[in-house]
């Protein structure tokens, strides 16, 4: 097995961001270059000038987690294709409130490749028996527990604690973070009341607009598992830069127009 594949496995296991470039058309076919976030690279595509150009492009794609095949012209005049794939650390889903809906939500999120953290101050709710799929179970007040979790753009926060005294402090921490998605359960009326409380706590309308609430896309979900699907569908839509309010009908037109060209 190649040294480079080992290095890639290691980076993925250590949850380190890395891009892998592979020469997929031209010679040496299959040659590889690993590009790390800092100045390090490993391996070679067989042409020093190509390594340099590809490393620069890979460092652009890596923070966005993008994948692309690009064509480069070598000094010799020959064109080669290089496939560049970014590997970012896994996304993290933080669920506040170890309630019934949280159980299928965590199980399904795991299936989507998420690292999951469940937080609840009530220890009879946040049990291993109820959450066999959770990577982390934290029995603590949400705002204190959130301080222990990395809340970067790779983290999505779902607040299911249907109670002001859990929900408000958690949302305040969430809004001060760079989390990729923030959602909170509750009816339209509950959401409006919550927005008002956050406004009084000093948050701007722009801040408050980051909260998706009522949470989830409208698929007529009733059961906890169906609600989990609706929430995760919304998260996927937001992650893909789609408008979740239109996501219910997004799939078919996208396919149809792509098929017509």
């Amino acid at each position: 097995m190649s040294e480079l594949f080992n290095a890639l496995r290691e980076a993925i296991t250590r949850e380190e961001a890395v891009a892998q470039a592979t020469l997929v058309r031209g010679e040496p076919l299959g040659a590889k270059l690993l590009v790390y976030e800092d100045d390090r690279t490993l391996g070679s595509l067989g042409h020093p000038e190509l390594d340099q150009a590809v490393a620069a492009d890979a460092r652009e794609l890596l923070p966005k987690g993008e994948i692309e095949t690009r064509t480069y012209r070598l000094k010799s005049g020959a064109d080669v294709d290089v496939y560049i794939e970014s590997f970012l650390p896994p996304r993290r889903l933080v669920v506040i409130g170890a309630v019934h809906i949280a159980i299928p939500l965590v199980a399904m999120a795991k299936e989507l490749g998420y690292r999951t953290t469940v937080i609840d101050a009530r220890e009879f709710f946040a049990t291993r028996e109820r959450f066999p799929h959770a990577d982390e179970l934290l029995v603590a007040w949400p705002d204190e527990a959130l301080a222990q979790v990395p809340l970067g753009p790779q983290t999505d926060i779902v607040v299911l604690a249907h109670d002001e005294k859990f929900e408000d402090p958690a949302l305040q921490v969430a809004l001060r973070s760079r989390a990729g998605y923030i959602g909170a359960i509750g009816s339209r009326k509950t959401s409006e009341a919550r927005a008002e409380r956050l406004r009084q706590a000093g948050f701007s309308d722009e801040d408050i607009a980051r909260i998706h609430g009522p949470i989830g896309i409208d698929i007529g979900a009733r059961t906890p598992a169906e609600i989990a699907v609706s929430i995760l569908a919304e998260i996927i839509a937001v992650r893909s830069g789609r408008d979740p309010r239109r996501a219910g009908s997004g799939l078919l037109p996208a396919k149809a127009s792509a098929g017509n060209d």
Binding site: T22, V24, I67, E68, T69, Y83, E85, A258, G259
Partner: peptide, 24 residues
């Protein structure tokens, strides 16, 4: 790997038109 298998890896590196799975 642990079982000593020989392994090949296939990756979608480009798509055109409608494709069921994305690049990567």
């Amino acid at each position: 790997l642990a079982e000593g298998e020989e392994i090949a890896l296939a990756t979608v590196v480009r798509t055109a038109g409608s494709s069921p799975r994305p690049v990567g």
